[in-house]
Design a protein around this nucleic acid. Structure first.
Length: 641
DNA sequence: TGATCCAGTTTTTTT
DNA sequence: AACTGGATCA
């Protein structure tokens, strides 16, 4: 065992049998502990394939995998480093991934037992919303009266609460629930017709599979005898059941989490799952990691002072060996412009004068719209930056391109078909699509148009089954007419074309896979990509929401927009105000604990929202931090001599 | 069918 | 202030 582990960490690594709950404070080295624990299991003779680890993002999964394989390669107790790489990589690694990717692989493997098509496609939020809109249109309901996003989010919440459509129907007695039940039913029908599953279905169907087919469940229980779940405080009811089912037989479950960092309740996550762990799993060994290896003690003091105000928590006090450190800077800006100038100016200063690499700095904010002005100021100052949150795979032109692949490989995916057929425009409009799907009589002209499109899809399919992924895409871009369509001389067209070209080059990552696995993997990863998975490993400052920053760390962290109403956010706070208030505070706690050395807080007195100017008071969170930990940021923006 | 224009809405966080 | 969706017209 390495000697630079503390007592608690060591215990977490060595307690391999039975239920273990690791309460891991921010920056307490939990990723490291998990990786060591897993490699320790392997060193004790457990087959790697018998270990399962569920992470919050694909990025975290990737890091976990590489840490584990490094540990196995360089482990002290064995002399593997003298073995060729192939001896290490030739052997299987533990299965590491997110709940969603785990569900996908289970459903592809054994989902047919409950009637799931092996080649189902995954609906992203956009696709799901389109189906809701279609459903509304079919039912002749007014989308203004019944907002599609609202209906979609209620359906999603119900699914996460394990409420089935049938159950909901019987409970729906009043006007609105009855309408909702009809929309839900229509949505469900459309999803099934396309052989598709939405994000919630992925998890839900896996639980259904396990409940209805005990033998399938048992197979997975036998396969994964050691189950690990990270970020357990942010699991929802379905994920909770999934975990429980998988680990039930052998009881080797290791959950890692921190109530203070629970920030996804609005998405159905329930931190009571972690609070009830010891009740669910008798004889749980509880381990608390309180030593923080990330931040200075001063930053932790501030963070502790903030979080201690929460009622729903288990007391915990983070401490660090890094005793000295800079105070937390607070800057009052007159408006968001000045705030942006302050941030960009200081990033520049820290980079040039204090030699802090740009990759070690991040600007965090509560809501995405705040990124625009900061982005502008970064451009004006000439600082390389990356905004996390504008997802590459969600861009229209990328979705259009991918829809050809989806449609070619799964002809029943109507959502993709409709997308592909109308982009670029080829004289096939709404009316003709309906006629075609209904099998009506077509004129010669119409028939030709449709036959041409079918031939195109067949060519794409043939490509996908024979050629490397990047080549499939290159051909597709030409043959579909997308290239000609976007090559129209406008800046926008140029940008979209560049994005599509980028997609083809990204696809090279999958070229090594045998066709059509490469394309299939590309489609799958595109659908399950998280914000963090898009973080580029380049020399740039990262701009992102606090949610997106979960699990990350930086030397210097800017937290912008600390205004009452914005952070804490007051929108739709009327229900369960106290709970939401506490979640906002946890969010601020997460933001503070991302920082290793420096924290800069800022707020604007005037802020323009919806094109109108608002006057804001500073956030109450600012007053939760003891005065002696705070200093005023310089009035004038630091200029370089 | 598809481009263009106008009105109305949006911004909480996302796998 | 920007983006969307719907209506209108070629």
């Amino acid at each position: 065992m390495e000697n630079d582990l503390n007592k608690a960490q060591e215990k977490a690594i060595l307690t391999t049998e039975g239920p273990v709950l690791i309460v891991a404070g921010a920056g307490s080295g939990k990723t490291r502990v998990l990786a060591h624990r897993i490699s320790h299991l392997v060193e004790r003779g457990v087959r790697p394939e018998a270990i399962l680890a569920i992470t919050f993002t694909n990025k975290a999964a990737g890091e976990m995998k590489s840490r584990i394989s490094n540990l196995l390669k360089h482990g002290k107790e064995n002399l593997r480093h003298e073995m060729p790489d192939s001896a290490i990589f030739g052997r299987a690694l533990p299965w590491v991934g997110t709940f969603h990717s785990l569900s996908v692989s289970i459903l592809r493997e054994t989902g047919s037992a409950i009637g799931i098509n092996k080649h189902f496609t995954i609906l992203d939020e956009d696709d799901a919303l389109s189906l809701i809109k279609e459903a509304l249109a079919d039912l002749a309901l007014d989308p203004k009266q019944f907002q599609p996003t609202r209906l979609r989010s209620i359906i999603s919440r119900k699914k996460n609460e394990l409420v089935t459509l049938e159950q909901f129907k019987t409970e729906a007695l009043e006007y609105f629930p009855k309408i909702l039940a009809r929309v839900w039913a229509a949505y469900e029908e459309k999803t099934q017709k396309s052989k598709a599953l939405d994000f919630d279905d992925l998890l839900l169907k896996t639980v259904e599979l396990f409940s209805k087919e005990p033998r399938v469940l048992e197979m997975y229980q036998e396969r994964w005898r050691y189950v690990h779940v990270d970020e357990y405080q942010d699991t929802n009811l379905v994920q909770y059941h999934l975990t429980k089912l998988l680990a039930q037989k052998y009881g080797n479950i290791c959950a890692v989490g921190d109530i203070d960092q629970a920030i996804y309740s609005w998405r159905g996550a329930d931190f009571r799952n972690i609070m009830h762990f010891e009740r669910d799993w008798p004889n749980t060994v509880l381990i608390t990691l309180e030593e923080n290896y990330r931040s200075t003690q001063l930053i932790l003091n501030a963070a502790n002072a903030v979080i201690v105000k929460n009622k729903f928590r288990v007391p915990k006090n983070l401490f660090s060996q890094k005793k000295s450190g800079s105070k937390i800077s607070v800057f009052e800006a007159i408006n968001e412009e000045e705030e942006g100038d302050f941030i960009a100016g200081l990033v520049n200063y820290l980079h040039e004068k204090e030699k802090i690499p740009l990759t070690e700095m991040a600007v965090l904010y509560r809501t995405n719209f705040q990124s625009r002005i900061i982005e502008e100021k970064m451009i004006a100052t000439g600082i390389p930056y990356q905004v996390i949150g504008v997802k590459f795979y969600e861009r229209k032109e990328i979705k259009d391109t991918l829809s050809y692949l989806r449609s070619a490989l799964n002809p029943e995916d109507l959502i993709a078909l409709k997308r592909a057929i109308s982009m670029p425009p080829r004289g096939i409009g709404k009316a003709l699509i309906i006629k075609m799907l209904a099998g009506g009589n077509l004129s010669e002209k119409e028939n030709k148009k449709i036959e041409d499109f079918k031939k195109l899809l067949e060519a794409v399919k043939k490509d996908a089954e024979e050629k490397p992924a990047s080549e499939v895409l290159k051909n597709l871009i030409k043959r579909s007419g997308l290239e000609d369509y976007f090559d129209n001389g406008t800046d926008e067209g140029e940008m979209r074309l560049a994005n599509i070209a980028e997609l083809a080059s990204l696809a090279k990552r999958y070229d090594a896979k045998k066709a059509p696995e490469g394309i299939l993997t590309l489609l799958e990863e595109a659908a399950l990509m998280s914000d963090q998975d898009t973080v580029k490993d380049e020399n740039s400052v990262k701009l992102m929401t606090v949610h997106a920053a979960k699990g990350l760390e930086f030397k210097a962290v800017f937290i912008a927009g600390l205004e009452d109403g914005l952070f804490p956010h007051h929108a739709s706070m009327e229900e369960e105000k106290e709970l939401r208030d506490e979640e906002e505070r946890r969010l601020f706690y997460v933001a503070l604990t991302r920082a290793k050395e420096k924290v800069y807080l800022s707020y604007a007195v005037f802020r323009t929202i919806f094109g109108s100017r608002q006057v804001n008071r500073p956030s109450n969170f600012l007053f939760d931090i003891p005065d002696e930990l705070i200093e005023k940021a310089p009035e004038k923006i630091i200029t370089l001599e």
